[in-house]
Design a protein around this nucleic acid. Structure first.
Lengths: 283, 283
DNA sequence: CGCCTGAAGCATAAATTATTGACCGCGCTT
DNA sequence: AAGCGCGGTCAATAATTTATGCTTCAGGCG
């Protein structure tokens, strides 16, 4: 039980000195952290032993025990209140805190708009393609590095991933596509005509098209069998760009983790690959 | 800030004994209530003074202060224990929620260990180099895409950034370095001898060396004029890797945003560049 | 190889906490 | 009214706990 509640409940049956101690603790619980039993006694003009006896009467092992309990109680009551409070006056936050909040909002929003089912279907499609076929990946503009990063990760899982950042070359690659293969197309605004053309072409060859775009209605997304979407907003364009990228990254990471955990073989292969890379790098 | 997060974040840069203390506290935070510094020392077979020094290094006033803080942290976590519990086994979280929590912890820890001052100095060094000199950027292994992404961003700000992912070529580039130039070296584990050699060489040419590594003590970091550090942990290696990357990204974003906001000219240039790119892509 | 730095322990000082025993005032009994 | 018991308080002190200074040792570097 909360020590503060306990103190209040017993207050009525206390002696005068004890009651003064009780009142002091109830009123200054926050300050207690910095008080030793001696200091508390001085503050009230009483002896230190009275303080200790007070705590023992209440059933604590001693003064430090009471102090610890009061600390817990305050923390519980405040819950995350003080986080919120300190968060409000942002001036002396560690650097990056504001940005971090923006990112969190966007990542959360992104999580909410991609249903479990969408993610699941994505994972299954890539998994299936990885077993018997190929995964084509294309990302234009700023998305290219994320596309490329994802392609690298897939290859760590033993999935054949073909990455291109050039629409024309990708068109050539795609002519080798088989039914069951997957095309992952990244485009923030989904407006690139070349990319749309590729998606259509891929679709004709009976491949599954997965698009990754901003959460707007856009031509590319309209062509998708599965559409992953990213939410990210900020008034400042350069912040918005960072926020978009981190949400995109998080979405991809989510898919990747699902993929890892969908299958023990893949998982084992990944761990082995990571180890190997680590050793190569450190040498 | 939560002492447990703090302990985790600093764990990497600790000595063996300190790390054992850290692990013990992280694993047995609940038992801490009943441990004096001496008992804790006995449990680990180390000296009591090591325990006290450990707490002081972390910025606490002493052992009781740490203990009190841990008590608060536990209480906060348990405070809404029912909420947490129901949320946890409600497996109908949106996908990616667990990963997101991991990332958040790591990003928070990373924010804590890079002081405002460190970030400021980094920004100023890059800013100065951007005006009258060059910024060299090298990233090996998995860090390369982050190094490259950062180089691209700098160039959007009108800062001359020279990116390489190859130690040998970078060595050649560096021979053109002038005093006042900056070298940004990325390496998760900071153990690559070639990179260290480059950093030393660069230092001789009176350039500022900024390193970005995991928050361990490592040879590369030791050579730095300014050391940015990343904290990231998870039991599963592939999760840890994702978490590391997102913390790294966030750190870089933080620096980038500071850079943007340090100067109106740069800011304007950036906005113009972003617009231009956008139009090019959508066409 | 010698120097330096930092980590860890030992011994000890300082502080905090817990207990003891004495004193006081109050109410109750005789 | 005097004596007695009792709870409450305190000063003194014992016990425990925490903090610090000093020494030693090991690893890195010139």
């Amino acid at each position: 039980m909360s020590p503060l509640v306990k103190i209040r409940s017993e207050r009525d049956s206390m002696s005068a000195v004890e009651r003064r101690i009780a009142d002091f603790i109830l009123e200054n619980a926050l300050l207690l952290r910095d008080y030793s039993s001696q200091q508390l006694a001085n503050a009230l003009g009483i002896s230190q032993s009275s303080v200790v006896k007070f705590t023992q009467k209440l059933g604590f092992r001693g003064y430090p025990d009471l102090k610890y309990s009061v600390g817990e109680a305050i923390a519980r009551d405040n819950g995350d209140a003080d986080n919120v409070a300190t968060a409000a006056d942002a001036s002396d936050d560690p650097p990056g805190t504001v940005l971090w909040r923006r990112k969190n909002e966007a990542e959360e929003a992104t999580r909410l708009i991609n249903s479990r089912e969408t993610v699941e279907r994505t994972v299954q499609a890539i998994d299936a393609a990885g077993r018997s076929g190929k995964v084509f990946i294309i990302g234009l503009g700023e998305d290219d590095i994320y596309a490329r990063g994802f392609a690298l990760k897939l290859s760590l899982l033993g999935i054949l991933a073909i990455y291109q950042f050039d629409a024309a070359r990708m068109a050539a690659n795609i002519s080798t596509a088989q039914p069951g293969d997957v095309l992952l197309a990244f485009s923030e605004h989904g407006k690139h005509p070349g990319l749309c053309k590729i998606a259509r072409f891929f679709h004709e060859r009976r491949g599954q098209v997965i698009t990754v775009t901003r959460h707007t209605s856009n031509p590319l997304r309209a062509l998708a069998d599965i559409a992953l979407v990213v939410s990210a907003h900020d008034d400042l364009p350069y912040i918005q760009s960072l926020v978009y990228q981190s949400s995109l990254q998080h979405l991809l990471d989510t898919v990747f983790v699902s993929l890892c955990e969908s299958d023990d073989t893949r998982h084992a292969q990944l761990v082995a690959n990571l180890d190997r890379i680590q050793q190569t790098l450190d040498s």
